[in-house]
């Protein structure tokens, strides 16, 4: 009897990457290597898996930010606090549910975590969660008006912020 248990916070990227070359192919029955590779070439093209992996990478990037030390930028940038990292990961989950796609997650030079987006025609957006618990967004880009605002990262509904991103990126 196998009892399923909830997945602890951990990186499944390594596990999922095993999809590329499952050991079963090495032992497979009647397929030649060429056949197996051809079959896999179709198998990889899932937008769902691509998005899952992308968010796993972003989550991992947020966790990795915890290893930065004070002055990591060559000046005196604070290290991201554990709270800002955890809130950043929770915010990533909400972003995923909202159907948005950030491009990267990096520590902030002011202390905290930044989630970046790339839009069309050079538009960019940044959601920043500071070490003091405050959060802000900025949508910018050469030739475009700059939109800025604050939000509560723990709010249940962030539709206003997400709609702003969708409409302006």
């Amino acid at each position: 009897m196998i009892l399923v248990a909830a997945l602890p916070q951990q990186d499944i990227l390594r596990l999922l990457s095993a999809q590329s070359h499952p050991a079963i192919y090495a032992q497979a029955s009647n397929f030649s290597v060429a056949d197996s590779e051809a079959i896999l070439s179709i198998s990889h093209e899932s937008s769902f898996w691509k998005r899952e992996l992308h968010f796993q990478q972003l989550t991992q990037a947020a966790r990795n930010a915890g290893s930065y030390e004070i002055g990591w930028d060559g000046y005196d940038a604070p290290k991201p606090s554990d709270d800002s990292i955890n809130q950043g990961i929770a915010l990533l989950n909400k972003i995923k549910e909202a159907g948005l796609s950030p491009s990267s997650v990096l520590p902030s030079a002011d202390g905290g975590i930044g989630i970046s987006f790339r839009g069309q025609n050079g538009r960019r957006a940044l959601l920043e969660i500071s070490n003091d618990g405050s959060a802000s967004y900025a949508i910018y880009g050469k030739g475009h008006p700059r939109l800025v605002g604050e939000f509560s990262p723990t709010a249940a509904n962030l539709a206003v912020v997400f709609n702003r991103l969708s409409e302006n990126l």
Binding site: M1, L7, I12, L16, Q19, P22
Partner: peptide
């Protein structure tokens, strides 16, 4: 027996019409 993570990938033959079924089962966060 308490499993907190799994990734299953199986390739099986489909008899009629002849083909293959790739089964992937995985646990997500």
């Amino acid at each position: 027996q308490s499993m907190f993570n799994f990734l299953v990938r199986l390739g099986v033959k489909i008899p009629d019409p002849q083909g293959v079924l790739m089964i992937t089962e995985a646990q997500l966060p």
